[in-house]
């Protein structure tokens, strides 16, 4: 997967979004097996057209059913249909979240706390803060939590607070 290309197109198209999930954790903390890019987008009518343009540039495909799988349409309104979309792009798998479990309705707060960063190739992005990554894990049912990730995040938060 060409993660840099996905992040670059999102940035170039001025998509208001945060990198979340395993890639964000990997860049900031520890290697973790993950084969998709997860982004949380501001899900309003100002931002979704930018997102749709970026998706079309990335060659994204999605379908309401397997039989309807196809390049994403010109009009951005399909993005209003549900809270999460798992897409393919020519650069790899991309998950787009309009809301994130454990952080529902708190995009603006999380954006303000997010960490501006860049990949090794110099591609800029904002990554969800450790406290918010931890809140996502804590919102999962106990059997689905990533305990190693939670332990690393708690330790990083403790260190950042100087404890």
């Amino acid at each position: 997967m060409n993660v840099d290309e996905i992040l670059k197109v999102l940035w170039d198209e001025q998509v208001d979004c945060l990198l979340i999930g395993g890639m964000n954790f990997l860049i900031r903390h520890r290697p973790e097996l993950t084969f998709d890019v997860d982004v949380w987008v501001r899900g309003d009518s100002d931002n979704l057209p930018n997102l749709n343009r970026a998706l079309r540039q990335l060659g994204a495909e999605w379908g309401r059913t397997e039989a309807e799988w196809a390049p994403v349409p010109d009009s951005w309104h399909w993005l209003e249909g549900q809270g999460v979309f798992c897409l393919t792009t020519r650069h790899g798998a991309l998950d787009v979240f309009r809301d994130v479990r454990g952080l529902e309705g708190r995009y603006a707060d999380c954006w303000a706390r997010a960490i501006p960063s860049s990949t090794a190739a110099g591609i800029a992005f904002r990554g969800l803060a450790d406290e918010d990554m931890l809140a996502c894990q804590e919102a999962l049912p106990p059997g689905e939590r990533n305990l190693r990730r939670m332990e690393v995040l708690r330790e990083a938060i403790r260190r950042a607070r100087g404890q």
Binding site: E61, G63, T65, E66, W69, V84, F85, C86, L87, T88, A93, D95
Partner: peptide, 9 residues
């Protein structure tokens, strides 16, 4: 969503 993508990939 993941099942659909797996099938289409």
């Amino acid at each position: 969503e993941e099942r659909k993508r797996d099938a289409a990939y």
